[in-house]
Design a binder for these strands. Sequence first.
DNA 1: GCATGATCATGC
DNA 2: GCATGATCATGC
Length: 450
Amino acid sequence: MRGSYSKQDVLVRSQSLINQTLRNLIPEEGLDGIEQQISIYGTNRKGFWGDLIEKYGYGLENDNLASADFHEAGIELKSTPLIKNKSGAIRAKERLVFSMINYMTVVDETWETSSFLEKNRLLLILFYLYSKEANLLDYPIKHFKLLDLLSDLSESDVLQIIDDWNHIVKRIRAGEAHLLSEGETAYLGAATKARDSNDTRPQPNSPVPAKKRAFSLKQSYLNVLVQQLSGKDTSESLNKQNEPAKTIRQLFEEKIGALVGKNEEELATLFEIDIKMKKPKNFRRLLVNIALGVRSNKITELIKANMTLKVIKLEESGKLAESISFPVFKYMDIIHQRWEESGFYKALTERSFVFVIFRKQEGTIVLESFRFWSFPAEDLEEAERVWRLTVERIKTGQADDLPKIRDSRIAHVRPHARNASDTLTTPLNGEQVKKCFWLNAKYIEKSLNK
DNA sequence: GCATGATCATGC
DNA sequence: GCATGATCATGC
């Protein structure tokens, strides 16, 4: 069977698999044996579902050859789980991981000659709906997406993925593989594969060993794909139809870069906004949205990239007045979490920011610049210290006395609530006002000036 | 002037 | 109703 599919065959076959389950697809005489394997290995055996769908969904024999699954059509098949959250919405359960990054050899590749492109030039992503309670034989297939990385350069996603690949490889060439983080790139990330911090690999241009990493499509990227495939995507793209595709960086250069040097009043006039009315709290964000050509804060490219747009204002001296907040944590949850699974850790390592920077100047406020920023890996240890201190205090009945701004050069804990009666339960200190981690304004300011 | 606590404002 | 971005208010 292997190799006899054309691209069209693969698409037709995939369409026919929608809403099917393995139980529907596996012939009766094969089911017993597979059920037995499930009872031995459990339902979480990695890749098992993917192996079975190749065989029973597409009639491909399992092998370990490095060449594409559908040899003839040059298509690589990747299966990835979806999960329903409490409110019933469907999202990607995890990132989609490709092969390991070989730091030693990838530095000699270009995108065109890369082993990544060689293996994944035509990517068929199959989404199935996982459920903790269900048998894996009963996971329904929900969507599929064919991504042509080789020739679909008009597709902005592909452009961005190439940009990301180049960024990652550039870092490795610079001897900075140990400083990589997933948040540095937009859609294609360098996800850690290491079980612990000793699980490392050598890199060519530095003696420092680096954590094992693999290329991956980010969970946030898959989430938007799924929304789009199911017709539920309400975000607005910065890439306009009939215009050439651009990367996120190019889009900001074009749309924000062009307005650098203009002040609030000039921007308001340009956009025909009546500024005589009282300025709302998010006035500059509104200006930025208009500049970007969107009407809401849901911007497709930024959601895909797990990137937060922050509009900040510097004092005349260049000082940043306000710290930057993260989502509120639950006292009762955080005490049971490991650092690596905490919301703060994930926000720091997987999220990134684009800052649009205004600055006070001679009685007005001027659009000064924009900057892409992600949390530097070398500062993770200090963030971890603040997090551990926070957890320790909550556990020991000091939830009313959490790390303050002077306790760390990087982060602190502060309220983030509607008002003083907007509280959550603590283990030993009763109800306390909702709080979250904040990155110190001074730390951000210094980091942006680097 | 800054740390800290508190709240406003908006959109989902 | 709530999460989140953004900023205000107070007191040392």
